[in-house]
């Protein structure tokens, strides 16, 4: 296999720049039956919280035009189960392991990072952007000052590459990205879901118990692409882009906008092979365009 897609970011070498987005791929096991997970550049596992969570009640999934709203609420088995059980399973998949950690408080993040620092993972993705949990979650990601302080504190606790996942719901995502960079983040990933809403007009009620929910899928791509472009042109650390990517063309657009790697989420739900197809497409593109490496197109727009 050619090295044309090999991607070096944050000191880690990925087979290719295509990563399964957190919350859409479990810990890789569920999809291993339906797609070749070893082809992937990496898997960002289901978002973890220190002690795990049962997630939200009520309707969790709702479709919109070319989009999807979710209110899962970070249902997860907790950091300890991940470290003790899931890591070893993921390692056998022959792809980079990204642990995604969220938290309700500074203390939660500290304990989580301490536990993950000694775990067999390649990258630690800090989720400061989940819109579906009431406490913490997104609030750390909307204010550059809070985000910077959190990253500074956690940076001291780990030598793992720290990728901070940003929310598009911040008033100034560029300022948050810069604060992360200034305080020691190795990279930023964006965007997490936008905040959306659905109403059941027959029942005259919001569809989701939490009223608002995370909105993703092809419908959000133009917004995501714009934000990746803005952030990538404002920071020096690598940007991992995501938000509605379904095709090779979408992936190329994100890379041209400045993303060194990309994540695919919602598309996998309707086509488990979406990422494998994108990887093949990127390789074909690189060869056709006589690139030595796909990274040559990063940020050209």
């Amino acid at each position: 296999m050619s090295n044309v897609l090999e991607t070096k970011i944050m000191g880690v070498t990925l087979k290719n720049p295509v990563i399964a987005a957190s919350g859409t791929f479990g810990f890789g096991e569920e999809y291993s039956e339906y797609t070749d997970v070893s082809r992937l550049g990496g898997i960002s596992g289901k978002g973890l919280t220190l002690n795990g969570s049962k997630g939200n009640d009520g309707i969790r999934i709702y479709e919109s035009a070319s989009g999807l709203m979710n209110s899962i609420g970070l249902e997860n088995p907790g950091v300890e189960v991940f470290v003790k059980e899931k890591c070893a399973v993921m390692r056998k998949m022959n792809t980079a392991i990204i642990a995604n950690l969220g938290g309700h408080s500074l203390e939660d993040y500290i304990s989580g990072v301490e536990m993950l620092d000694s775990a067999d993972i390649d990258i630690l993705e800090l989720n400061i952007s989940c819109p579906n949990v009431k406490k913490g979650g997104m609030s750390f990601g909307t204010d550059p000052k809070f985000a910077g302080e959190l990253v500074a504190r956690l940076r001291k606790l780990t030598t793992k590459p720290l990728l901070v996942k940003l929310t598009p719901n911040a008033p100034d995502i560029v300022a948050v990205a810069k604060a992360c960079e200034d305080n020691g983040a190795d990279g930023v990933s964006l965007i997490n879901t936008l905040l959306g809403m659905a109403i059941d007009v027959k029942r005259k009620k919001a569809v989701f118990n939490n009223v608002y929910a995370g909105f993703s899928g092809p419908a959000v791509m133009p917004v995501a692409l714009r934000m990746v472009h803005q952030v990538a042109h404002s920071v020096k650390i690598p940007v991992v882009g995501m938000g509605g990517i379904t095709s090779t063309e979408d992936a190329l657009a994100f890379m041209m906008a400045g993303a060194s790697a990309i994540q695919v989420g919602t598309a996998t739900f309707y086509d488990p092979d979406a990422m494998v197809k994108i990887i093949q497409g990127l390789e074909d593109y690189a060869i056709e365009n006589k690139l030595n490496n796909i990274s040559e197109i990063v940020g050209i727009v």
Binding site: G23, T24, G26, Y34, I61, N70, E75, T268, F269
Partner: peptide, 13 residues
């Protein structure tokens, strides 16, 4: 309601 059908999204819990 389901998104993925294979146990990954946790939408149908």
């Amino acid at each position: 309601r389901m998104a993925c059908g294979v146990g990954a999204c946790l939408g149908c819990t």
